[in-house]
Design a protein around this nucleic acid. Structure first.
Lengths: 253, 253
DNA sequence: CTGAATATGATTGACTTTGACTGAAAATGG
DNA sequence: CCATTTTCAGTCAAAGTCAATCATATTCAG
């Protein structure tokens, strides 16, 4: 049985019954436990299901055709997910984390499962997910920005200052340039990001290859203040140039 | 049986009958006493139920709607909507409002359309709706409470103090009693509500008739500090008694 | 056809859940 | 008020479940 066929079968089993044991799936698919477990972890990382001890519980989102849902996991999605996975690998037990608003950082959340970390965020959509994964969560104060549902403004900046982080994960950086540093379109968001960085021991920037060499409107910080996580597709010249200034992780897909 | 299945079963048992013995749950689930007790403590920690000696009493809100429960919620829904409409009628152009977490106050949001108000809230689910209705919104800081997705704790209390409100709308008041005042199950939430009231010119409490004459665990304030909005179904004695102390709006359905 | 990348299944040791047992705490009934 | 019964939290060993590793099998490109 081909991988995708098998996964579709798992999903339909989950649609019938919210919770299905691994053993049961093995019987249905005639695949080994190992394989099923792999499928389940993958499906969870793609945020299609939520796993529980003893079986996997279907969760996230509607019942629109599963085949398309799997294939719709675009290259971009996969890219973001890989970056998030790498980012999560730096996280240790007991860490206090800041998750910046935006979809890139949201992808990190499934990897935090059972890690006993404390998360502070300014992203409203993050909160629901964090609750689902049962992670201790704090939200900073701030004005809600339309579109991204991020908390920004003076209140946000002041509010962040009341926390200290072991690690800070930033997304939404639209420009990464060796001399001109990290930039983003909205100055209000830039302030929030900058303040979060100042409160953190170490900051990771999650960025796709298209952002390198670009410059946006509002400056956030120097390149040397952060570690960068991205995927292949970035020009060699950028890698060598940036790696003189800081750590840059380039992930194969 | 998988943990999650078992817990769902416990919750549905609790929905039928407010109080169920451990022994009874054991029979239903075919699990040992130890396991059930563990489930109960966990569910309590997750703030989904409240335990009592001899069995556990269901508390905080819905989990999965049964057909019967759907009808119940639609009836409740209409009630809540009417209350919200009345509450909204007090709101004037340019007001700054505090919307407490909880479904009652969320119903107010659609009535705010095109009213040019500023809203501050501690309810995460509120934010998404407020964005949709294009309302200027601020979120207070705080720790995320599982289940209700409300922001609570010291940070929340401190954060509220940085705002001033024309009107404050409270939901989630489980007890309204002429002498013993307004009460709610969670002391942390009570502090937040109390602080919000202090920052506001006037406070409205949204409550359904079942809450009158009841007393819950944590005190929020005196009855005289708030205006009450409810629907018919409340006993006459309560109305006359309370109307000596404050304004009480009783809405026909 | 060969080698690299990927998928699979068996095995292991770590971790989680479970149920029986224990003594403490709470309700019950004189 | 005390003694009895019931209910409860904590501990422990056993069973179940899981992630990690490895060796094998399959796929695909060159």
């Amino acid at each position: 049985m081909i991988t995708m066929e098998r996964r579709d079968l798992i999903l339909s089993l989950l649609k019938e019954k919210d919770v299905v044991t691994v053993k049961r799936i093995c019987e249905e698919t005639k695949a080994s436990e190992s394989t099923i477990r792999r499928d389940l972890t993958d499906l969870e990382n793609k945020q299609i299901i939520k796993r529980v001890h003893g079986g996997g519980a279907s969760l996230l989102k509607k019942k629109r055709e599963e085949p398309t849902l799997i294939e719709k996991t675009t290259k971009n999605q996969r890219e973001k997910n890989k970056i998030a996975e790498k980012a999560a690998s730096f996280i240790e037990e007991g860490d206090s984390l800041y998750l910046d608003a935006g979809s890139s950082t949201m992808e990190i959340i499934p990897f935090l499962k059972d890690k006993s970390v404390v998360v502070v965020t300014n992203g409203i959509p993050h909160v629901q997910l964090l609750i689902e994964y049962d992670i201790e969560t704090y939200v900073i104060a701030g004005k809600v920005k339309r579109g991204t549902a991020a908390l920004i403004g003076t209140k946000a900046v002041e509010s962040i200052k009341e926390f200290r982080f072991d690690k800070c994960f930033l997304g939404g950086i639209n420009g990464i340039h060796a001399e001109l540093g990290l930039t983003t379109p909205d100055p209000e968001e830039a302030s929030v990001k900058r303040t979060a960085m100042l409160q953190s021991q170490i900051t990771y920037v999650l960025a796709d290859p298209s952002k390198f060499g670009e410059v946006s409107f509002a400056n956030v910080s120097e390149v040397s203040d952060v570690d960068i996580i991205t995927t292949v597709g970035i020009a060699e010249e950028h890698v060598t140039e940036l790696s003189k200034l800081t750590n840059i992780e380039v992930i194969a897909l």
